[in-house]
Design a protein around this nucleic acid. Sequence first.
DNA 1: AATGAATGAGATTTCATTCAT
DNA 2: TATGAATGAAATCTCATTCAT
Lengths: 175, 175, 175, 175
Amino acid sequence: MFASPGLAEVNTNTIARAAGVGVGTFYAHFEDKFALYRELMANGLAMLQQRLSEASQAARDQPIEAQVRATVAAFVDFARSDPSLYRVVFAGGEGPGRAGRAGVGFSARAMENRLAELQQAGQLASAIDVAAAARFFNAGQSQLLLWWLDAADPPSPAGLIDTLVALHPAVVCRR
Amino acid sequence: MFASPGLAEVNTNTIARAAGVGVGTFYAHFEDKFALYRELMANGLAMLQQRLSEASQAARDQPIEAQVRATVAAFVDFARSDPSLYRVVFAGGEGPGRAGRAGVGFSARAMENRLAELQQAGQLASAIDVAAAARFFNAGQSQLLLWWLDAADPPSPAGLIDTLVALHPAVVCRR
Amino acid sequence: MFASPGLAEVNTNTIARAAGVGVGTFYAHFEDKFALYRELMANGLAMLQQRLSEASQAARDQPIEAQVRATVAAFVDFARSDPSLYRVVFAGGEGPGRAGRAGVGFSARAMENRLAELQQAGQLASAIDVAAAARFFNAGQSQLLLWWLDAADPPSPAGLIDTLVALHPAVVCRR
Amino acid sequence: MFASPGLAEVNTNTIARAAGVGVGTFYAHFEDKFALYRELMANGLAMLQQRLSEASQAARDQPIEAQVRATVAAFVDFARSDPSLYRVVFAGGEGPGRAGRAGVGFSARAMENRLAELQQAGQLASAIDVAAAARFFNAGQSQLLLWWLDAADPPSPAGLIDTLVALHPAVVCRR
DNA sequence: AATGAATGAGATTTCATTCAT
DNA sequence: TATGAATGAAATCTCATTCAT
């Protein structure tokens, strides 16, 4: 429900009804409508992080492009496996407690560090601002998949992955 | 107000009060708080489109990279010139009338066509899906600037522009 | 407008617009929405009274039944000649200033006196309460015409008049 | 409250307060103030119908005049037993949902049929239009009682009943 | 622990009325 | 005298939250 009518449009009664419990029961389990949202989002994000780091570990010793491909593939896979959850995590949603936007900033720091290493190793053009590049890629990737999940005539997952890999800062600016 | 507390958090009374008019006056001019939002957004988007096409025209005969740089610079400039408006346009905002998300899809089609031309001219790797690449870049760019406007320690505009240019599909995948 | 959407449903702006003047102009002429209503109603009532007393005068020297027939015919005629005005006068309408219901009580006193004379002259059964009979006939007659004006398959005016005459206290209870 | 300040003058807050519940509670039980009105009215009408048909049944085998007297007496009794309810049912009240006027048309059809039978049996002058006569009597009776409930110097119930019986089409036009 | 009727603060919206032009 | 934009009081209605059962 958070995914499709949106956070602001759902009400607690409806949530409870849909869950097959009474309104009171809802409040026995969650502080708030927003608490549920935050929890959902945090779970989704944790799940995604988990998948990404597993993919990253597995590809640890491969060349950079293969590493990138592994994480991109894991990301795309996550979006496909649970589109609603993906939308909750990345489609934002306003509200007290600054619930929204959390997904967007996600893991930018980790990627930023990774890019900084590459840059120091001379693998990444020095004109690139690593903080910006990390945010750019993360935002682009996550919003692209949001579009993809609803697209009338969506590209194949493989095409998507190829494109994202080709456009990844660590791959692009190797020279 | 739409930029900072957010669409869902503002109410018509507050808007009217802040505008120095009565509530009734607000409703004499706008159907809804959403109507105002939509109008604001449409205006902002139109303004941005205008600036982008001007920049694009001016750089028409220059090499691809210069063209890209011109539009990216215009985009960054727009964000800088009116951060609040920029947030209204790109930070989304749910609600009846499907106000939100409009900015995100913005002009993807135009860029998609441009990339397709380059691809047919052999200037863009054929593995790239142009629809995806266009959405990716647009989303990445607009969300990056959203972060940038609020960043504690933001990169310089020039650094930002360099980075975005370096990561633009039309620049990246030239070979 | 008072006749068909009803007093409570009309607003001053609409009235003024329909009259081809500004709202302000409306208030230059009438204290109130209700003042207009009252004036309309008073006019209608005065007009009706006028017609009724003319008819009554003209039939002054005829037998009772002919007198009754004359006033009933005048009443029916009035309803037919301006149905909207008729509805304003008799369809009631709530509101401050006790605008409504005025038509209903209309002229009951005059008829009551007339019936009392007949009763004292032995022309009307003494079991009849003249106050009640007068109210009864007036209300019955006015509401009947309200129905008649909108009826899908309305009786002819002549049939209506015959019926009302036949049921008029002064005619009925002559013995 | 519908009886005395009138439908248009009451608001949901006042109703709820008077009922000793919160506004929300009111809306949990009724769609609208109009829904409550309609329900009240429908109940009142049903109650009245019930009483009338009981009275009618009980007098089934008596002469016409006694039958009429029985229903008229039941009607008067109903008005006396719950004046407020009576006013709600018969005093009308405009508004969305076409709440008003319902009471006025009440049961005219049944009476119309009854009169038609009498007419065919030669018990009722053929000049009488039965549809009109039925509406006339019903409207006259119900509005008369409305006046009676508030009259400064009201006739006795017995006098009222005598008068209404004497003026009833089925009694009057017997020859 | 689960329930859902009750609550009322707060948001939206209308509209009679005013008043500067 | 005519105008209509501006006003804000008041009405409607929603919904997050509580609490007695």
